[in-house]
Design a binder for these strands. Structure first.
Length: 303
DNA sequence: TAGGCCATCTGGTCCT
DNA sequence: AGGACCAGATGGCCTA
């Protein structure tokens, strides 16, 4: 059970005059954190309303077990380990621990974002001006991997239109427009839901992709229609299709990626990044080496 | 102005 | 014990 910021800040603000939200969102870096005296209520403190920061200021640094001296018979005696008073020294240690944890978390998230940025550069439709959101980047990457895998599996070069259709499955309208823009296409010409009068030649061309098991569910997600896609098919590619050099890699990687945890929404995404980058790079280079992929190569050059 | 996206802080859990 | 990872909460920024 976690305490919300609001709860904590309210508790704190009743004890101190500092504003917790200021500290929280003042692009707080470590130096500033050191100076700031406002910290959220720690577990050790949260139940003892009478132990406020003001009171703590007056305590010495000596650590001592809290005595159950309140003499309030109405309160049941607390079980478990005795709480320790939040002495100045303990408060300092707690602050330091939190600061270090925050710094690590920031660093971790920056690493995650760096990896995401790398992915943005690899997937089709890289734009410095209009950055894909995280979720759209992952979706596009997933579609991209699937499309490339399908090319490798079938050995045929797909029509550019159907390739882009595959790329844009489940993406939001703005992202679809972006992809279309990157390819200098009109999104109306390839969006399935908008192409009911699709010319027959396009229907034929897209058959190689659209006939594949590419199922969607839309479990009550808000608009834009973020459909979830069964990711398992992406990795149901036999390792030998990629050459023997990568077999050991795929033996493990594919197994991992088809595990249930991989189907989680955005959880554990960082663990997928290295694999995602690897397979995209490899698929792209393999396609280039096959040379006869027609519009596919054109597509890569454009991107 | 509402909604989407994001960065950050936080406490819990698991692992080494 | 400390670090990594995770998910919830929060507020800022931006855009339609």
């Amino acid at each position: 059970m976690t305490k919300s910021y609001t709860e904590e800040s309210m508790m704190l603000e009743s004890q101190t005059s500092t504003n917790w939200t200021d500290k929280c969102h003042s692009s707080s870096q470590d130096e500033r954190d050191v100076e700031n005296t406002s910290v959220p209520m720690h577990k050790d403190m949260e139940d003892d309303d009478e132990v406020g920061l003001n009171r703590l200021e007056d305590e010495d640094d000596e650590e001592e077990e809290e005595e159950e001296e309140d003499g309030d018979d109405t309160k049941p005696k607390r079980r478990g380990p005795k709480k320790k008073k939040m002495t100045k020294a303990r408060l300092q240690r707690f602050k330091l621990r939190r600061m270090k944890a925050n710094a690590r978390e920031r660093s971790r998230m920056h690493g995650l974002n760096d990896a995401l940025e790398s992915l943005r550069k690899i997937v089709p439709c890289f734009s410095k001006t209009q950055k894909l959101s995280k979720i759209e980047t992952l979706r596009l990457a997933k579609n991209y991997i699937w499309a490339l895998s399908e090319i490798l599996r079938s050995g045929k070069s797909p029509d550019l239109m159907s390739f882009v259709q595959a790329l844009c499955k489940g993406l939001s309208q703005p992202t679809t427009n972006l992809v279309a823009g990157c390819l200098q296409l009109n999104p109306r010409t390839f969006l399935p839901e908008q192409s009911q009068e699709m010319p027959s030649h396009m229907q034929t061309a897209s058959a190689s992709f659209s006939a594949l098991p590419y199922s969607y569910q839309t479990p009550g997600l808000p608009s834009p229609p973020y459909g979830t896609m069964d990711s398992s098919h992406i990795f149901h590619v036999k390792p030998h299709a990629y050459g023997s050099a990568l077999e050991p890699f795929f033996d493990t990687a594919l197994t991992d990626c088809t595990s249930p945890s991989f189907d989680g929404p955005l959880k554990k995404t960082i663990r997928l990044f290295s694999f995602t980058l690897c397979i995209v790079f490899y698929s792209a280079s393999t396609l280039r080496s096959h040379t006869q992929v027609g519009t596919g190569v054109t597509f890569f050059r454009m991107c």
